[in-house]
Amino acid sequence: MKILITGVNRGLGRAMVEAGVARGWEVQGTLRRGDAPSGVVAHALDMGEFDTFADLAARVGPLDCVILNAGIIGPAMQSPLEMDFDGFAETIRINTLAPLALAQALLPNLRAGKGGRILAISSQMAWMGYRKPDRIAYRASKAALNKVMQGLATELEPEGLPVALIDPGWVRTDMGGAQADRDPGDVAREILDTAGALTLSQTGAFLHSDGRPRPF
């Protein structure tokens, strides 16, 4: 499996690289700063610089899978009554627009691979059943990510390229915090299992990390 993962310097992205390398997969990864995990072919990439995405696509070669993992939690002030609107816009740009732009740029690589597929790392905080006012910029960016990737899935379905959203749960990372109930290594292995088994019947779906469907 030839796979590209974004945001691999820490957290879930780093854990997915380690899990992929352990399986003998050819793993490439992007990072804006920090150190890359061992065994990955690393590419410097700022997810806010869309004009560099074509250059990345020219470097990575054919791909079987892309996992769009890189993201930000958003500004410190992001309640509906006190919103950092510039921070909100940046959160949408990085968490929603950048994954779509990068997926578009990498489509030729996926078409050149074997059964190309796209997974986008979303969040349980995107679920519309939550009536919670905290971290609205982050929640909204992930809900919007779900919708744009669902649309991409519809467009790519005739080509046989599945696209799915992943809810990894509450993971013990810098973003999730030490109190989170899920180990990043366990979640990473589940996501890679799901990636390897993803079929066109699941395209456009919102899935738990182990591939079980969940509501939007």
Rank of each mutant, 00 (worst) to 15 (best):
D134H: 11
G74D: 06
A164V: 01
V171D: 03
L152D: 07
T91G: 12
A164I: 05
E82F: 12
E157W: 12
T91Y: 03
S79M: 13
L165G: 00
I72W: 00
S123I: 03
T96F: 02
T91R: 04
I166S: 01
R117V: 06
F85C: 04
G160C: 11
A105P: 02
M83K: 01
L152T: 04
M175H: 04
L107H: 12
V148F: 02
L97K: 00
G87H: 14
A70C: 09
S141V: 04
E155T: 12
R139P: 13
A137S: 15
Q124M: 15
R117A: 08
V148A: 03
L107Y: 09
G87I: 14
A76Y: 09
L161N: 06
G169K: 06
I136L: 15
D174T: 13
M77T: 14
I166E: 00
R172G: 06
A153I: 00
G113V: 04
P75W: 08
G71I: 02
L102G: 02
S79W: 12
M83T: 12
A143N: 01
E82V: 14
S79E: 08
L119A: 04
D174H: 14
P133M: 08
F88M: 11
A98R: 10
S79V: 06
R117D: 01
R139D: 09
G116T: 11
G160T: 13
I121F: 06
L110H: 07
P80N: 15
V163E: 13
V148L: 02
L119S: 05
S122F: 08
A143T: 10
K132A: 15
E90P: 00
P158G: 11
I73G: 15
N95L: 03
T154F: 03
L165H: 00
G129W: 07
R139A: 11
P168E: 03
A164L: 08
L152H: 07
S79H: 12
N146C: 04
M77V: 12
R135H: 06
I94T: 09
A140N: 08
D134P: 00
Q78F: 04
D174Y: 11
K132R: 13
N146E: 05
T91D: 07
D84Q: 14
A98G: 11
P162W: 01
G151Q: 14
L165P: 00
G74F: 01
K147M: 15
L97R: 01
L156S: 06
A144W: 11
T96D: 05
I94Y: 00
L145F: 10
G129P: 14
T173W: 09
G177M: 08
R139S: 07
I94P: 00
D86E: 15
K142P: 03
I121E: 03
I92S: 00
L100Y: 13
A153N: 07
I72L: 07
R111T: 08
A76M: 14
T91S: 09
T173P: 12
M128I: 15
R131S: 15
R135G: 02
A144T: 08
V148P: 05
V163M: 06
T96E: 07
A120K: 00
L156W: 02
Q104L: 07
Y138T: 08
T96H: 01
V163I: 04
G116R: 14
M128D: 12
E155G: 06
R111C: 10
S122K: 01
G160K: 09
L145C: 05
G151N: 15
Q124F: 09
G177W: 02
R131P: 01
